[in-house]
């Protein structure tokens, strides 16, 4: 754990972190990029989740929709993660002490785990059901869980802003 704190300290004391912390415009600028990227991540994931629930794009096979949308999702996720990392290092110690920040990271991991489990177990027989308007229950559950997890990720993100003063 102390090694982790040391590593966090190295980032927090870096010139980049100090620049973000001390500038009046850098933090809001990176935060705006973070919001745009997160919106694209969440919105595009919702489009796939709604397909899994049988509520949207029902005429499209699931794998076809996913392969069209996921490059956008992953691109946006990379930007969200990079901008999020920059925001984090500007006040790393305070963020780590904030319960909503910790919850947000855990919930993002949970959403990733949900996706991995869906791919590994539920989607093995994907070709058999992916053209159905309403997919089987386990796919609908994965979609519903994903939507709920991402809603809580966004909620935690907003609550961070109300429970810690960074500027």
């Amino acid at each position: 754990m102390s090694q982790f704190s040391d590593l966090v300290g190295v980032f927090e004391e870096s010139g980049v972190a100090a620049a973000i912390r001390e500038s009046d415009t850098l933090f809001p600028f990176i935060e705006s990029v973070h919001v745009i990227a997160i919106c694209l991540v969440v919105g595009t994931i919702f489009a796939i989740d709604l397909r899994l629930l049988g509520l949207a794009s029902v005429g499209r096979p699931v794998s076809r929709l996913a392969s069209a949308i996921l490059p956008v999702t992953w691109g946006a996720f990379a930007v969200a993660a990079a901008s999020g990392f920059l925001l984090f290092i500007s006040n790393a110690t305070k963020y780590l002490a904030n319960g909503y920040f910790d919850a947000k990271i855990i919930l993002i991991c949970a959403a990733g785990l949900n996706m991995i489990i869906f791919h590994a177990i539920s989607a093995k027989d994907l070709p058999q059901w992916e053209t159905q308007a309403v997919p089987p229950l386990r796919a609908r559950l994965a979609g519903l869980l994903s939507i709920l997890l991402w809603i809580t990720v966004v909620a935690c993100g907003r609550w961070i802003g109300f429970t810690m003063q960074v500027l």
């Binding site: 745009i36 997160i38 919105g43 809603i151 966004v154 907003r158």
Partner: peptide, 20 residues
């Protein structure tokens, strides 16, 4: 914060739809 969360989630839907 609840209103802002709902607002951002709706922004995510509208923005992503437009971008696609």
């Amino acid at each position: 914060p609840t209103l802002q969360t709902i607002h951002i989630l709706c922004v995510a839907i509208v923005f992503s739809s437009a971008v696609l």
